[in-house]
Design a protein around this nucleic acid. Sequence first.
RNA 1: GCUUUCGUAGUUCAAUGGAUAGAACAUCGGUUUGCGGAACCGAAAAUCUAAGUUCGAUUCUUAGCGAGAGCACCA
Length: 561
Amino acid sequence: MNAIHKAAAALFTAAGVTGNIEFTTPPNPAMGDLAFGCFAIAKEQGKSPVEIANGLKEAIAGQSNGLVDSVDTAGPYVNITLSSIEVARIMQEALAKKEFGSSNLGENKKILIEYACPNPLKAFHLGHLKNLITGEAVVRTMENAGYDVMRVNYQGDVGMHVAKALWGINDWIDEFEQVKEKSLRDRVEFLGKAYAHGAQHFEKGEDEKQEVIVFNDKVYERAEDIQAVYQEARTWSLEYFDSIYARLGTKFDKFFFESEMYEEGVTIVNEFLEKGVFKKSDGAVIFEGSKHGLHDRVFINSKGFPTYEAKDVALAHAHMKLNPEKVIHVVGKEQTEYFKVVFKALETVLPESKGKEMHLPGGFLQLKGGKMSSRLGNIVTGDALLDQVTERIAEIMAESTVENKEVVIERVAAASLKYTMLHADVSKDVSFDLEASVSTSGDSGPYLLYIVARIGSILTKAGTFDSAVLPEAIAPQEKALLLQLAQFPAVSAEAALQYDPSKITRYLFDLAQLFNKFYDACPVLDAEERTKAFRLQLASAVQGVMKKGLYILGIETVEQM
RNA sequence: GCUUUCGUAGUUCAAUGGAUAGAACAUCGGUUUGCGGAACCGAAAAUCUAAGUUCGAUUCUUAGCGAGAGCACCA
């Protein structure tokens, strides 16, 4: 409940309303600022909602309180028009607090958030890019709600994809030696080609398939003869991932690797095989999810090697050693059923994990328009997409003469990309259209950055101003802006409760629109002294909320663009 | 086939069971003696179908149609 709602709720309490008092916004501003629906009370008292509304109207109107300008009913609703000055006064007080927009929902609660999770020796693809951006925003959403968050990243450095890449490298060992002297970009590009080479070989036939599988065995057996190449290639990959994390403003607290998990995974699963939790089937060790309304999954294959499932069991043990309240796995929605089975198995294998493991399903990233894919071939990597966006922003800003232009371009590009990715609900697919995301107008990252820069420009010109003064009159656009600002704490808290940063994205866009309407209707610098000071307060508050909200989304602002 | 997620303007997204379903892009038409026009104002435009629950359904239930994803030794 925000500061305005709290003050208004007191009136309803005084009028005899008990329980939770919640307000909505009337469909038309002319009807009032706050609406109270009387359905629940009517049901409770066996009266008609209209009757209740009329009674409440009298009770509210009878109270002498500066907050309310007028009360009216519209059928089952009591609509209140608030005094603009009172709203301004309340918000002045609320906005002065540094923690405005933060909450303590997660106070003293430690949580682990696992995201990014790319596979070494393989490309950082679009799914990883979206996951990285989403994960970072979820982290910051939770931090803003007071949680003590640990950013964790689990990277798959063993498995068939590694085998395919190693086979490819081995087949092109001369080129591998040569590429060692080249740039990181070139080395990673080589790894990508080597992986594709191995993957193609794998598909050729049974004999070829076996040749690749040999490398898989060698990795699991930690065979001496592959270590030099494997370790070197792995290091390149990790360096490359680090460069992407840095470029997008993420820094992980802890990295876990599959190579650290598989021996323990096998041990644990075998231990619980004896206890009857798992079962032998066709030479493999499975968990019968089908007995719990789920599906069966293989944890150890018939060769005795662990699958992803067994490694996840060991990973869960590693996570629990850190004593978290919750472990949030930000992973694509295609793994929803997979996680249900693993979590089910963990309930018996690792009882303390029960209720703590959570899968936050991410939607897919769909590229729209053939433009990008035709230019880059079928596989578009995450960093290639970021490059594309940056290129387009540079074109748009070609005429610009801002200082530190390179940095500004990089930030506007990142903002465009992140805003687009964080616009729809986390679990919904995002369709990415390059032109729409770099769009200079409308629902886009640049639109929001523009507001911040524009306000900065006004504030610089204005110099210092009185931050406590109230004006004689308040324009409707100013009131609308104040009421929107008042919503920020509730919106950011809701985002944390839902693990969904997109609530903040959409809130900020609404705020931006209201600011532009205000800006258009209300001159700031040329206004009479008290009005000017108040409008500067407003602009400054909008900038503050905008910056904080964008920070939560992982978006850096610019002073000029 | 089984499981699961989802069907809202031309397109991309909203809407704790509640008032006239809200934005953006695109389309059409407007706004200059102003602080950044990367802006603002206006018009036209949508709940897949059929039953059911409810005073009230985009939202809940069932069926149908359509789309995506998962379903044993990949991650």
